[in-house]
Design a binder for these strands. Structure first.
Length: 289
RNA sequence: GCCAUGGUAGCUCAACAUCGCAGAGCGACCCGUUGAAAACGGGGAGGUCGCAGGUUCGAAUCCUGUCCGUGGCA
């Protein structure tokens, strides 16, 4: 018997997570929590392939549209919001479906990550002024053990390591009994085709206007516009790039994303890879008892 | 047909004058990932330098021929 059922559905972009989630949540009394670092933004609907209003009407969705494109939301904040949403769902006797392709977001929830404290803006601003060598030196002085686990080429990690050196962090090493993780098993060729088609549809639905609206409203260098399709179509919206080039860059960005997502997910032994909706259905039925 | 110009990694191009280990960016492939994660970072692979001769200790580089494509003139 499962008390607090959590079913995660993971996989690369354009692998069909949304459809499967709607199908399963509809059948098994579920609600969906989107674990996606981009659909959390308001107004970024078309280019992020956010579930449509109609889809949201079929099954309740959580954690969509939580921040303005001009703002940022961290993984730590996401995890906290997901906890609140899950508690809410369980209290109403329903099943929580955590759906998304942001590997770290998913893991932070299913493995109950305890993050070190949030960044102190004053300290971060100070660290930003240091060179990588200085950041390494600073760690060596204060927390030599922290230096062993950090990628010394990666400036962001070096800054973060300086911010959090000595602070506790933890995670579950074993998946909870109340959690089932389904992975979308798909071949890359299929995904690539779907990506191309999806971009065409996005253009038909007014993606360029969406990019222009975000650019003019929140600034052309806002965080939101670092998202793949938006980055590719920024210059198209500004009129200095062709739609064809934009679409090609969008597709290339998506293909790269797919690879990174697969790299993240394939090392996770807890994922039950499914090829068909039927398989997924069977596993969920079995899991819920 | 003549003149000019180009042919080097999957793609775009460096290196050529004054011969001396053939390079970069992008892509493809692989990996890392604890409060920016669609972010950020790391790695190896990939070459008959169009082809055939010649000069030279040594040729992507100089010489000759030849094939291909681009522009111009006819």
């Amino acid at each position: 018997m499962v008390n607090h059922p959590l079913i995660a559905i993971v996989g690369p972009t354009a692998s069909g997570k949304t459809d499967l989630a709607l199908d399963l949540a509809g059948k098994f009394n579920g609600e969906i929590i989107c674990a996606d670092s981009r659909t959390i933004y308001k107004g970024m609907d078309i280019g992020t392939a956010k579930p449509t209003k109609a889809e949201q009407a079929r099954v309740p969705h959580h954690l969509l549209d939580v921040v303005e494109p001009g703002e940022k939301l961290s993984v730590g904040e996401f995890r906290r919001l997901a906890e609140v949403a899950m508690t809410d769902i369980w209290q109403r006797g329903k099943v929580a479906f955590l759906v998304g392709g942001s590997g770290l977001y998913i893991d932070s929830v299913i493995y109950e990550y305890e993050f070190p404290a949030a960044a102190d803006p004053v300290l971060r601003a100070e660290l930003e002024t240091l060179t990588n060598a200085e950041l390494i030196e600073r760690l060596k002085q204060d927390y030599p053990e922290a230096l062993e686990n950090v990628d010394q080429h990666n400036r962001r990690r070096l800054i973060r390591a300086n911010e959090t050196a000595g602070l506790p962090r933890s995670k579950r090493t074993v998946l909870g009994d109340d959690t089932l993780v389904l992975g979308m098993a798909v071949n890359k060729e299929m995904i690539h085709q779907r990506i191309e088609k999806r971009i065409e549809k996005m253009l038909e639905r007014g993606f360029i206007d969406e990019v222009r609206r975000i650019g003019t409203t929140y600034g052309w260098d806002s965080e939101a516009l670092t998202a793949i399709g938006y980055r590719a179509f920024k210059d198209v919206a500004l009129g200095t790039k062709t739609v064809e080039d934009g679409a090609a860059d969008f597709a290339r960005g998506d293909r790269l994303l797919v690879k990174k997502q697969l790299t993240w997910f394939k090392r996770n032994p807890d994922i039950r890879w499914v090829e068909t909706a039927y398989e997924a259905d069977r596993l969920v039925r079995e899991f819920l008892g």
